[in-house]
Computed example of a mutant assay.
Amino acid sequence: MSTGLLNVSVLGAGRMGEGIALSFINAGLPVTLIDIKERDEDERCGYFERVRSNIRNELQMLVHIGVLQPEQADIALSRVTLLSKSQAVSTLQRCDLVFEAVPEVIAVKQETFGWVSEHVATTAIIASTTSTFLVTELAEMVNEPERFVNAHWLNPAHLMPLVEVSRSEATCPQVVERLLALLKLIGKVPVMCNPVAGYIVPRIQALAMNEAARMVEEGVASVEDIDTAVRVGFGLRFSVLGLLEFIDWGGGDILYYASRYLTGALDSRFKSPEVIANNMQNGRNGIRDGQGFYDYREVDVEAYKLRRLSEFARKLALSGLTPAFDSALK
């Protein structure tokens, strides 16, 4: 994708807006942060200085941890332009892509989408970053909803690679393709998700976080031991294998019977979904059957396993957790 004529603006200069801006300026692209709140001149100047200071501090943190050189942080900061709503009209008219990152209040979003729709070109992509509302709800607030899409970033937005993208029935396929290409250009890993509450990561992590809190409540283990188990067990494992991929490694039938035991011993929330039982009935338990959630029939399974285990070994080494030979004898 050519970046020669690419103009990106972010509506809302809060935490998410700053994180999105950091992603673009770090990748070499200028970005305009637009404050949607009406302020008098003194208040606006003070607010802009705080926003610029926040971005500067995040860049300095990247310098501190060795991700950036000091001069790179200065160059990146120079790529940010801060504008008030009234100052931004001419900028919006030249925009190729506008991210909405205003507070999760439906009235604020409706007003913002109405305003931006009046000023951007018909070819501009408008992308919400909401984690609360569905793209199908918000598309109705935008003129020409075929150019509207949702791009849900994870915090901290400038460090987390994943962006969950969802479209409405009205969204033009070319709009999605353009957005995905741009996100990849700045080093993000976009995935597509249907417009369903919770998207992918928030839905999975809500279950996991609630279960961790419930174990504290029930006295299963200490806070520290639960978090240690997540960091060096759950987290490490699933940084290499996706959840569905892991089911295929162990076998869907193993999950089925484990879930049945936990349902009887603890609660019905552990009951496995029908797709697990259906896969069992159809001989699709995973790698050993050649099929599961993935199809392994034409895969060199030994080479595939070796790649994944090598990735896991590298993660262990980075975490300082690689088992040392003869460690018990030292």
Rank of each mutant, 00 (worst) to 15 (best):
S78K: 15
P70K: 05
R52Q: 14
L83G: 06
L33H: 08
L77Q: 11
K37G: 07
M16S: 03
F24D: 07
E41Y: 04
Q87F: 08
R50K: 15
E146L: 01
L59H: 13
A88Q: 12
A124W: 08
R44S: 12
L92V: 00
V105H: 13
M16K: 07
L77P: 10
A121N: 08
L77C: 11
E104S: 06
H64Q: 13
L29E: 00
S128C: 07
V67L: 10
Q93G: 15
E18C: 11
S78T: 09
L29D: 01
F99K: 12
N143V: 05
F113L: 03
V142M: 08
R147T: 00
V31I: 13
I55M: 15
T122P: 00
V149R: 12
Q72E: 15
S90Y: 12
F48L: 03
V67G: 06
E49M: 04
E38W: 10
A101K: 14
F148E: 04
L77I: 09
I75Y: 03
E137A: 11
L29V: 03
L29N: 02
L97T: 09
F24W: 13
N57K: 09
Q87D: 15
L22W: 07
F148V: 02
I126R: 08
W115F: 08
S86T: 11
T81D: 09
E41W: 08
G66M: 06
S53W: 04
S23C: 02
K37T: 14
V31G: 07
F133P: 05
L82H: 14
A127I: 05
A121I: 01
V102D: 03
I36P: 08
I34T: 01
S90H: 14
S78N: 15
L68C: 01
C95A: 15
I20W: 09
E118Q: 14
A21I: 06
S131K: 12
L22H: 00
D42C: 05
A121R: 14
K109Y: 04
P103G: 12
R39V: 02
R50D: 10
V149H: 06
Q110R: 14
L82Y: 15
E41Q: 14
V102L: 06
R79V: 01
D74M: 05
P103I: 04
I125Y: 01
I55G: 05
I65E: 05
L77N: 09
G66D: 09
C95Q: 01
I34E: 00
F24G: 09
D35Q: 14
I55R: 11
R15S: 14
R44I: 05
E144P: 00
F99Y: 15
F24N: 07
N26C: 05
H119L: 00
M141W: 07
T32V: 13
L11R: 04
T122M: 06
I25V: 15
E49P: 02
E146F: 04
N150L: 02
V31S: 13
A124P: 02
T81C: 05
N143A: 06
T122D: 10
F113V: 02
T32E: 10
M16I: 11
E111T: 07
R39I: 00
L83R: 11
E38D: 12
L59S: 03
R79F: 03
